[in-house]
Protein backbone atom coordinates (compact mmCIF):
# COMPACT_ATOMS: atom_id res chain seq x y z
CA UNK A 1 0.00 0.00 0.00
CA UNK A 2 1.21 3.53 -0.75
CA UNK A 3 -0.11 7.03 -0.26
CA UNK A 4 -1.27 7.35 -3.87
CA UNK A 5 -3.33 4.16 -3.79
CA UNK A 6 -4.72 4.98 -0.34
CA UNK A 7 -5.69 8.50 -1.49
CA UNK A 8 -7.23 6.94 -4.61
CA UNK A 9 -9.34 4.50 -2.57
CA UNK A 10 -10.45 7.31 -0.25
CA UNK A 11 -11.43 9.43 -3.25
CA UNK A 12 -13.37 6.47 -4.59
CA UNK A 13 -15.22 5.92 -1.29
CA UNK A 14 -15.84 9.68 -1.11
CA UNK A 15 -17.40 9.68 -4.60
CA UNK A 16 -19.72 6.80 -3.72
CA UNK A 17 -20.79 8.47 -0.46
CA UNK A 18 -21.43 11.81 -2.23
CA UNK A 19 -23.67 10.03 -4.74
CA UNK A 20 -25.60 8.06 -2.11
CA UNK A 21 -26.09 11.23 -0.01
CA UNK A 22 -27.25 13.19 -3.06
CA UNK A 23 -29.85 10.59 -3.96
CA UNK A 24 -30.95 10.00 -0.36
CA UNK A 25 -31.10 13.70 0.70
CA UNK A 26 -32.76 15.02 -2.45
CA UNK A 27 -34.81 11.79 -2.74
CA UNK A 28 -34.08 12.09 -6.44
CA UNK A 29 -31.67 10.62 -8.95
CA UNK A 30 -32.16 13.36 -11.52
CA UNK A 31 -28.99 13.97 -13.51
CA UNK A 32 -27.52 10.60 -12.58
CA UNK A 33 -27.06 7.85 -15.15
CA UNK A 34 -28.55 4.60 -13.87
CA UNK A 35 -26.74 2.80 -16.68
CA UNK A 36 -23.35 3.88 -15.38
CA UNK A 37 -24.35 2.71 -11.92
CA UNK A 38 -25.34 -0.68 -13.32
CA UNK A 39 -21.98 -0.91 -15.10
CA UNK A 40 -20.15 -0.07 -11.86
CA UNK A 41 -22.11 -2.79 -10.04
CA UNK A 42 -21.08 -5.26 -12.76
CA UNK A 43 -17.47 -4.05 -12.47
CA UNK A 44 -17.37 -4.81 -8.72
CA UNK A 45 -19.29 -8.10 -9.04
CA UNK A 46 -16.92 -9.46 -11.70
CA UNK A 47 -13.79 -8.12 -10.00
CA UNK A 48 -14.45 -9.08 -6.39
CA UNK A 49 -15.47 -12.69 -6.94
CA UNK A 50 -12.20 -13.56 -5.19
CA UNK A 51 -13.57 -12.00 -1.99
CA UNK A 52 -14.08 -15.48 -0.53
CA UNK A 53 -11.26 -17.33 -2.27
CA UNK A 54 -8.26 -15.02 -1.85
CA UNK A 55 -7.53 -13.09 1.34
CA UNK A 56 -5.21 -10.13 0.65
CA UNK A 57 -5.77 -8.02 3.78
CA UNK A 58 -8.56 -6.88 6.08
CA UNK A 59 -8.53 -3.49 4.35
CA UNK A 60 -8.86 -5.16 0.93
CA UNK A 61 -11.78 -7.35 2.02
CA UNK A 62 -13.60 -4.56 3.85
CA UNK A 63 -13.32 -2.22 0.85
CA UNK A 64 -14.56 -4.92 -1.53
CA UNK A 65 -17.63 -5.51 0.63
CA UNK A 66 -18.17 -1.74 0.88
CA UNK A 67 -18.01 -1.25 -2.92
CA UNK A 68 -20.30 -4.22 -3.57
CA UNK A 69 -22.84 -3.04 -0.97
CA UNK A 70 -22.87 0.64 -1.97
CA UNK A 71 -23.09 -0.06 -5.71
CA UNK A 72 -25.99 -2.42 -5.09
CA UNK A 73 -27.68 0.17 -2.84
CA UNK A 74 -27.26 2.88 -5.48
CA UNK A 75 -28.81 0.74 -8.23
CA UNK A 76 -31.66 -0.18 -5.85
CA UNK A 77 -32.30 3.49 -4.96
CA UNK A 78 -32.32 4.50 -8.62
CA UNK A 79 -34.39 1.72 -10.12
CA UNK A 80 -36.71 0.87 -7.25
CA UNK A 81 -37.05 3.44 -4.48
CA UNK A 82 -36.71 6.67 -6.46
CA UNK A 83 -37.63 5.12 -9.79
CA UNK A 84 -40.08 7.98 -10.53
CA UNK A 85 -37.20 10.51 -10.58
CA UNK A 86 -35.00 8.44 -12.91
CA UNK A 87 -34.36 10.29 -16.19
CA UNK A 88 -35.10 7.49 -18.68
CA UNK A 89 -35.20 9.78 -21.70
CA UNK A 90 -31.76 11.27 -21.36
CA UNK A 91 -30.09 8.16 -19.94
CA UNK A 92 -30.16 6.45 -23.31
CA UNK A 93 -26.57 5.25 -23.84
CA UNK A 94 -26.53 1.72 -25.31
CA UNK A 95 -24.44 -0.11 -22.69
CA UNK A 96 -24.29 -3.25 -24.84
CA UNK A 97 -21.87 -1.23 -27.00
CA UNK A 98 -19.61 -1.20 -23.96
CA UNK A 99 -20.28 -4.65 -22.50
CA UNK A 100 -19.69 -6.66 -25.67
CA UNK A 101 -16.38 -5.09 -26.79
CA UNK A 102 -15.04 -5.31 -23.22
CA UNK A 103 -16.08 -8.98 -23.01
CA UNK A 104 -14.47 -9.80 -26.37
CA UNK A 105 -11.28 -7.88 -25.54
CA UNK A 106 -10.99 -9.64 -22.16
CA UNK A 107 -11.14 -12.98 -23.96
CA UNK A 108 -8.35 -11.95 -26.32
CA UNK A 109 -6.03 -9.83 -24.16
CA UNK A 110 -5.59 -11.14 -20.63
CA UNK A 111 -2.85 -12.38 -18.30
CA UNK A 112 -4.25 -15.89 -17.99
CA UNK A 113 -7.11 -17.66 -19.76
CA UNK A 114 -8.96 -18.75 -16.62
CA UNK A 115 -12.51 -17.79 -15.56
CA UNK A 116 -11.39 -15.61 -12.63
CA UNK A 117 -8.68 -13.87 -14.61
CA UNK A 118 -10.86 -13.21 -17.68
CA UNK A 119 -13.62 -11.83 -15.43
CA UNK A 120 -11.07 -9.63 -13.65
CA UNK A 121 -9.82 -8.39 -17.04
CA UNK A 122 -13.39 -7.78 -18.25
CA UNK A 123 -14.01 -5.78 -15.06
CA UNK A 124 -10.88 -3.67 -15.62
CA UNK A 125 -11.84 -2.90 -19.24
CA UNK A 126 -15.47 -2.19 -18.32
CA UNK A 127 -14.53 0.16 -15.49
CA UNK A 128 -12.51 2.29 -17.92
CA UNK A 129 -15.64 3.08 -19.98
CA UNK A 130 -18.36 2.71 -17.32
CA UNK A 131 -18.61 6.48 -16.84
CA UNK A 132 -19.52 7.10 -20.51
CA UNK A 133 -23.31 6.88 -20.01
CA UNK A 134 -23.00 9.45 -17.20
CA UNK A 135 -20.87 11.84 -19.28
CA UNK A 136 -23.28 11.26 -22.19
CA UNK A 137 -26.22 12.16 -19.91
CA UNK A 138 -24.50 15.35 -18.73
CA UNK A 139 -23.76 16.32 -22.35
CA UNK A 140 -27.39 15.68 -23.34
CA UNK A 141 -28.86 17.69 -20.48
CA UNK A 142 -26.11 20.28 -21.03
CA UNK A 143 -25.52 20.77 -17.33
CA UNK A 144 -24.99 18.96 -14.02
CA UNK A 145 -25.88 19.82 -10.44
CA UNK A 146 -22.79 20.88 -8.51
CA UNK A 147 -23.12 17.82 -6.23
CA UNK A 148 -23.02 15.58 -9.32
CA UNK A 149 -19.90 17.35 -10.57
CA UNK A 150 -18.22 16.83 -7.17
CA UNK A 151 -19.12 13.14 -7.47
CA UNK A 152 -17.55 12.97 -10.94
CA UNK A 153 -14.44 14.86 -9.81
CA UNK A 154 -13.86 12.44 -6.92
CA UNK A 155 -14.55 9.44 -9.13
CA UNK A 156 -12.18 10.65 -11.86
CA UNK A 157 -9.48 11.50 -9.32
CA UNK A 158 -9.50 7.97 -7.88
CA UNK A 159 -8.12 6.34 -11.03
CA UNK A 160 -5.82 9.30 -11.73
CA UNK A 161 -4.29 8.68 -8.30
CA UNK A 162 -4.00 4.99 -9.17
CA UNK A 163 -1.85 6.00 -12.16
CA UNK A 164 0.55 7.63 -9.68
CA UNK A 165 0.34 4.48 -7.55
CA UNK A 166 1.44 2.38 -10.56
CA UNK A 167 4.38 4.70 -11.25
CA UNK A 168 5.37 4.40 -7.60
CA UNK A 169 5.03 0.59 -7.58
CA UNK A 170 7.04 0.27 -10.81
CA UNK A 171 9.85 2.40 -9.42
CA UNK A 172 9.86 1.02 -5.88
CA UNK A 173 8.59 -2.57 -6.22
CA UNK A 174 9.32 -3.26 -9.92
CA UNK A 175 5.68 -4.25 -10.10
CA UNK A 176 3.41 -3.33 -13.01
CA UNK A 177 0.24 -4.57 -14.66
CA UNK A 178 -0.08 -3.31 -18.23
CA UNK A 179 -3.78 -4.21 -18.53
CA UNK A 180 -4.69 -2.18 -15.45
CA UNK A 181 -2.38 0.68 -16.50
CA UNK A 182 -3.72 0.84 -20.07
CA UNK A 183 -7.35 0.80 -18.91
CA UNK A 184 -6.57 3.31 -16.15
CA UNK A 185 -5.06 5.74 -18.66
CA UNK A 186 -8.13 5.45 -20.93
CA UNK A 187 -10.43 5.91 -17.92
CA UNK A 188 -8.62 9.03 -16.74
CA UNK A 189 -8.48 10.54 -20.24
CA UNK A 190 -12.28 10.26 -20.48
CA UNK A 191 -12.52 12.60 -17.47
CA UNK A 192 -10.08 15.22 -18.77
CA UNK A 193 -12.75 17.26 -20.53
CA UNK A 194 -14.85 17.17 -17.36
CA UNK A 195 -11.84 18.00 -15.13
CA UNK A 196 -11.24 21.12 -17.26
CA UNK A 197 -14.87 22.24 -16.92
CA UNK A 198 -14.90 21.42 -13.20
CA UNK A 199 -11.77 23.43 -12.42
CA UNK A 200 -12.57 26.41 -14.64
CA UNK A 201 -16.27 26.62 -13.71
CA UNK A 202 -17.53 24.67 -10.73
CA UNK A 203 -14.64 25.73 -8.46
CA UNK A 204 -15.52 29.34 -9.31
CA UNK A 205 -19.03 28.77 -8.02
CA UNK A 206 -20.56 28.60 -11.47
CA UNK A 207 -22.90 25.82 -12.53
CA UNK A 208 -21.37 23.12 -14.75
CA UNK A 209 -22.73 24.17 -18.13
CA UNK A 210 -21.51 22.26 -21.15
CA UNK A 211 -21.13 24.32 -24.34
CA UNK A 212 -24.37 23.47 -26.16
Amino acid sequence: MNIFRFAGDLSHVFAIIILLLKIWKTRSCAGISGKSQILFAVVYLTRYLDLFTTYVSLYNSVMKVLFLATSGATVYLMYVKFKATYDHNHDSFRIEFLLIPCALLSLVINHDFTVMEVLWTFSIYLESVAILPQLFLVSKTGEAESITSHYLFALGSYRALYLLNWVYRYMVESHYDLIAIFAGVVQTILYCDFFYLYITKVLKGKKLQLPA
Binding site: D9, H12, D50, H111, Y162, S174, H175, Y176
Partner: peptide, 10 residues
Amino acid sequence: ATATAQHDEL
Protein backbone atom coordinates in the same frame (compact mmCIF):
# COMPACT_ATOMS: atom_id res chain seq x y z
CA ALA B 1 9.58 -6.42 -13.21
CA THR B 2 6.67 -8.84 -12.95
CA ALA B 3 2.99 -8.62 -13.73
CA THR B 4 0.76 -9.39 -10.75
CA ALA B 5 -0.12 -13.03 -10.38
CA GLN B 6 -2.52 -12.19 -7.57
CA HIS B 7 -4.43 -8.93 -7.83
CA ASP B 8 -3.77 -7.08 -4.60
CA GLU B 9 -5.41 -3.81 -5.68
CA LEU B 10 -9.07 -2.86 -5.49
